[in-house]
Amino acid sequence: MDFQGRTWKFGADVDTDAIIPARYLNTSDPAELAKHVMEDADPEFPNKVKEGDIIVADKNFGCGSSREHAPICIKAAGVSCVIAKSFARIFYRNAINIGLPIFESVEAGEKIQEGDVVKVDVNTGLITNVTRNEQYQATPFPAFMQQLINAGGLINYVREKVNKGGV
């Protein structure tokens, strides 16, 4: 499967309070949360972002709290995937668990400029910058995580395991 979309660029250490400020956490409704996605990093972002767009960031994207509302609201806003030089570990885990595709690539984080159109091959992690005619390779997922992704997230994976009497 491929994603192709226009990119929005963010800096280093984008924290979960910037992705979805706590003042909106009195709800867990994805559509409601999406209205405020990335608001404290860029107040205009919720209006600008379009279905299929891609977020590109520097290092340590999603640091801070464990709120799953962060990947949930990014996904609900229509963002197809997130590319960053590195991800904070709880965000990384949450994104995989809920089925928001993420890709780690220092080169991509460096070279992609805001507005570039980028194509991502989900299976191989190959990132093609259509605008600049460049390619970057994202770090592949370990086999177990690929299994989680293929199952459609952690809940499906556990449900299958439970039904097989595995737990």
Partner: peptide, 20 residues
């Protein structure tokens, strides 16, 4: 260690979690 809500849900059901 801190995890997200989905990990917590899976843990509440199975009593297990995966870690690297």
């Amino acid at each position: 260690t801190g995890v997200g809500s989905t990990d917590a849900a899976a843990g509440m059901a199975s009593g297990e979690a995966w870690f690297k």
